[in-house]
Amino acid sequence: MSATTSTPPIIGLDGVRKTYRTGSLEFEALRGIDTAIREGEYVAVVGPSGSGKSTLMNILGCLDNPTAGSYLLAGEDVSTMSEAQLAEVRNRRIGFVFQQFNLLAGLPAWRNVELPLVYAGLPRQERRERAVAALERVGLADRTAHRPGELSGGQQQRVAVARALVAEPAIILADEPTGNLDSRSTADVLDLLDGLHDAGRTIVLITHEHDVAGRASRNLVIDDGRIVSDTPTARAGVPA
């Protein structure tokens, strides 16, 4: 544990294992992960491909259940929840940013951003207002009606960040958010994440690039399904 403050962790993993079965073959992707992430932390999960970091991301994002162990998200045990319950938890607690942006090509930016609110059951007017506000926050106030195809890669990822923010989730989970971006857009998006961290957001970033990981306040290094190191970075002292 890197921090010992009294606030309860927003993420608590205890003995989390994940085993995949393909026919008679068993593959243990996670071999017992114990960690806690507190509110306002900016954690980078780093590791080579095949280390289990994608599996960890799926479990942190409530996209998959662990085979064993428990996962407390904002005080709720989500490790044994059903598919429908998990969907509801993802909607309320987690904002996703994907490497592939994953915007719906047929919808304008604001309609992409409002999607989490659609599933939260908010009325149309409120959704629109909040979606536009989120787009303003990522600097795309003048692009709300543009479709993804009319935006640059960096702008598309900013739309995705706006979508991750719009429902005010407990954590923002970014999976290689800069993997498909040029260096200028990468800097843009990382600056945006820094800004969100400064504003008190909890961010978990998954990456294999060390300079990207360096922007976080804490680095979790995963290898072979285990945490091999857990260290604060140079930015750890920056007040949240």
């Binding site: 598919e83 969907a87 993802r90 909607n91 719906l104 939260a120």
Partner: peptide, 10 residues
Amino acid sequence: GLRKALGATP
């Protein structure tokens, strides 16, 4: 997949 990740139930 995306809609489910964003909270759409089955």
